[in-house]
Design a protein around this nucleic acid. Structure first.
Lengths: 220, 220
DNA sequence: AGAGAAAAGTGCGTGCACGCAAGTTTGCGG
DNA sequence: CCGCAAACTTGCGTGCACGCACTTTTCTCT
């Protein structure tokens, strides 16, 4: 009724998903995540418990999803919109860093909650893997259309893995100083993201160069 | 009593794990994975159901683990044992390919079973991620000891992701020929592994070069 | 506009993952 | 040689993920 183009059906579906997200996060903040039953979330969103897990496979996923939102899509869009002439590796790095620094604005309490509880931390890390599919699409678009070559998928998955590692290191307190002398305890998240993505830059450069060579295969 | 060094306690633990693995696979092959209850597996291994999932977090994990065995450790060992002078990227690729081709020998029926059932396929793909920790160790050893630099972890995770993608593509039947013209339907697993790992080679080369530069920082 | 198809929501039942608090075995030091 | 402490196992209880079959809502085609 309000948004004909995508169809009324999908509209309601998104509304339900949003309601579940919000309810999950709100209740988790109010009473602590261990005192929230699936029934409570479903109830607050006005659906049956059975419907709830047509949308989310776990309680943690629902809570985290309220913070994560559709970060993946925005990252992919940012990469796709990069100005021509910018190194692909840089475009990806900046897109990722940008979206992850914005995320801090949402709700400080939510971030604290997530980084505190182990189950939520795990779900949060898993959520990082969601960037893989949309990133695969934009990379495949840039690197050439042959669907058989796994290059785009591998690079996208590698970026997802790097993000996971960066966030993981950022979340953890101190672990234990067994081996070396002094290790930087935390470091900012953007720094960690850049550091984790840096080793992949050569792979991006090579892939980009090869794609360009295919486009203009006559250098001499 | 038979293996004093690792301690009698751990010995029994490994025996239990092995018994559970074997029981899970045997029962799954006999009656099909859907007709196997956790209670059955635990029973066949001579432990309580509660103990069973002190070892495995899911039924699928137990079954797949019988095929996967400790592939991760062997891959890491193979990388660590590479002859000096061989490109790190090549060493990793060959180690992975070697271990995954050996895997076919185990039991043809088991492979068929796993590739058929979606739940088992998923568990099988997840198992590929297990190579990350041991591979991280050997890569960190090669690339320099600074634990703060995430390079080794990122590369290890990227390899794990590439393996997952290769196996995923190998498992799937045909999907659907939407975009391009003719795509190779399957291709051999080794070929797929090499193709998936190839895009990462430049990243390995760069990391290796940097590590060498640190070791001998006086090129001029 | 109306019928038929597809999709989303729902109730119910089953098996399971996992926390908790014993009970039992193993390993170690006096 | 013996008891103590840590590790492993186990019974019990709870909430949950998910399959199945059915109802309700939305989309589509004639």
């Amino acid at each position: 009724m309000t948004t004909p183009p995508p169809g009324l059906r999908d509209r309601k579906k998104q509304a339900t998903r949003e309601a579940l997200r919000e309810a999950a996060l709100r209740l988790a903040l109010e009473r602590g995540p261990d005192n929230v039953r699936v029934e409570d979330i479903a109830d607050a969103a006005g659906v049956s418990p059975r419907t709830y897990n047509n949308y989310f496979a776990s309680r943690e996923q629902a809570i985290v999803s309220a913070v994560t939102a559709d970060r993946e899509a925005r990252i992919a869009a940012a990469v796709a919109a990069r100005p021509t002439g910018v190194r692909l590796a840089d475009a990806v790095t900046e897109a990722v860093v940008g979206q992850y620094t914005d995320a801090d604005d949402r709700d400080p309490r939510a971030l604290l909650l997530i980084t505190t509880r182990p189950a939520l931390r795990h779900a949060f890390l898993d959520a990082a893997a969601a960037i893989e599919p949309p990133l695969t699409v934009v990379l495949a678009e840039r690197l050439g259309g042959d669907a058989e070559a796994p290059t785009a998928r591998v690079l996208a998955a590698s970026v997802a893995a790097a993000v996971r590692i960066a966030v993981e290191g950022w979340i953890q307190p101190a672990e234990g100083d067994a081996a070396g002398g002094l290790v930087v305890p935390t470091g900012s998240l953007p720094d960690r993201l850049r550091a984790a993505l840096a080793p992949l830059a050569p792979a991006f450069d090579a892939a980009e160069a090869e794609a360009d060579a295919e486009t203009a295969p006559d250098p001499a």
